[in-house]
Amino acid sequence: MTAFVKGTNMGPYEAARHIPGVSGHELSYTANRHFSIVLLNEAITDLLNAHARLDISQTWGDGTAVAADGTHMDTYLDNLLSETSVPNG
């Protein structure tokens, strides 16, 4: 639940209004005790390394070069995924 609250940027007390059985204090306490920028960066590193080990990732190359076509794609305002994911189309 803490990852959901952090990921949606909803905040613990707003989230608690929509999640039965949990209080804003519980969500806030858990986030403050178990969430930090250092831990977030470690999780990102673990995820990227795991992705790089996938067969499909290795078929794209060894990861030493990247390419982009510079295509501008409009995204919705305040879209949680707009910074990290652009739909194929």
Rank of each mutant, 00 (worst) to 15 (best):
S36F: 04
N32C: 07
T84L: 09
A15W: 02
G61H: 06
K6T: 12
L40D: 07
A43P: 00
N9I: 02
G89A: 15
L54C: 06
R33C: 03
D46Q: 12
P87D: 01
N79W: 03
V86P: 00
P20R: 14
V86G: 03
A52V: 01
A65C: 06
N9R: 11
S85D: 02
L39D: 08
L77F: 10
N49A: 10
F35R: 10
M10E: 02
T75Q: 04
L54P: 02
A16M: 04
M1K: 09
I37Q: 12
A52N: 08
G89R: 08
V22K: 11
V38E: 15
H34W: 11
H34C: 09
V38K: 15
A68R: 14
P87S: 00
S36R: 05
T64L: 08
R53P: 01
A67C: 11
L48I: 09
E26L: 13
S57M: 05
V66L: 13
A15D: 03
S85Q: 05
A16R: 01
M1F: 07
H72Q: 12
H25D: 14
H72P: 05
D69H: 02
H18S: 12
H25Y: 15
V66A: 12
H18R: 14
A43I: 03
V22S: 04
L48T: 08
N41M: 11
Y13P: 02
G24M: 01
G21A: 01
I44R: 12
D55Q: 14
R33I: 06
L39H: 10
A43L: 11
E26W: 03
L39C: 03
I44L: 14
L80E: 15
N79T: 05
T71Q: 13
T59R: 14
M10F: 05
E42H: 11
N32L: 05
M1H: 08
T45M: 03
A15E: 03
A50V: 08
G24S: 04
I56Y: 14
I44P: 00
E26Y: 04
I44F: 05
V86R: 02
F4V: 10
H51L: 15
Y13I: 02
S57A: 12
R33L: 11
L48Q: 10
F35P: 03
P87W: 01
M1R: 09
L81A: 13
N9H: 06
E26N: 07
P12I: 06
E14A: 14
T45L: 09
